[in-house]
Amino acid sequence: MSGFKRDRQGNTKRHGDGPKATAKPAVRNAFTPMFEGLRDELDAHHDRRARLWKSSRDVTALSKKIIFSLQRVRNIENELPPNIQGEVDSRLAEVSQLLAVMAPEIQGINRYRYARSLDCLEELVEALTFYHYLKTQTLISHKALTPIVDDLVRQGVAASEDAVMESPEAPESAKESEALTIGLTDEDYLYGVFDLTGEMMRFATTSSALTGKLAGGDTEDGRNIVQDMHELGSFFEMLPYRGGPKSIWEKKLEVTRQSVQKVEKLGYDLKVRGSERPKGWIPDFNSTEQEAED
């Protein structure tokens, strides 16, 4: 007879006999159905935001890794070192898969609804503009960057279709992917380019420390990175203040000003003392750091 709970009189307690379990039916009233409908809508919204937030964090992390790889480049030239190019390509492939998952959720009205969960785009712009700068020494325009990002989405969709060929959903997503777009906003672009100035400053510092000359300016009349930083600085100073949270704009502008000044100090140092340093001379601490980095 073991295995049963008994009451004080020794009678076996059967399920449903004792005090009622907590699962009493929820109180319903005239408004309950309406609130249940609203609940489902709100749940869908919150779930979507959580999903986007998660993917966004991953894209941000990957973008930062791309930037780290690019910081190992020493010169502005059309061909990146193959190992770095390889790292960038594989990370971009990962980014494109994440973007392909995110894109369907941010079409149309949802683009701005979830704009605050899409911080990653700013980071991605930073990585892509930096990549473009290192190869061409120009700032890629918003208009030219938008199709590049949308192309990443298409590649990601294609990659996921290859992986799940048999999935019944595949044909449907193929149809949708035609119109899928991330729709990079001016904010994404501008805030990303603001951060680009920081990366350019870092690049100018390491590359000049290691090569003994300023990046760019290989020919007599060519621009070097000091001039580029000045141009970017003036670019932001001249733009009218953008609507939205003013503090972000001002903070980023202030950081940009500091970066510009760091690079111009660099230019001055090289001009004045650079000639005293034998060409190709590399300080020891930098070379060990370089090895550790690799």
């Binding site: 502005i76 061409t136 020494q137 120009t138 700032l139 325009s141 918003h142 208009k143 001016d186 501008l190 760019g216 290989d218 020919t219 060519g222 621009r223 001039q227 580029d228 141009e231 970017l232 670019f235 001249m238 733009l239 009218p240």
Partner: peptide
């Protein structure tokens, strides 16, 4: 070689 300008003037005008 490097193009004459870092920033295409059209980009600035558009953003402005």
């Amino acid at each position: 070689m490097a193009p004459a300008a870092l920033i295409d003037p059209a980009l600035f005008d558009q953003l402005k």
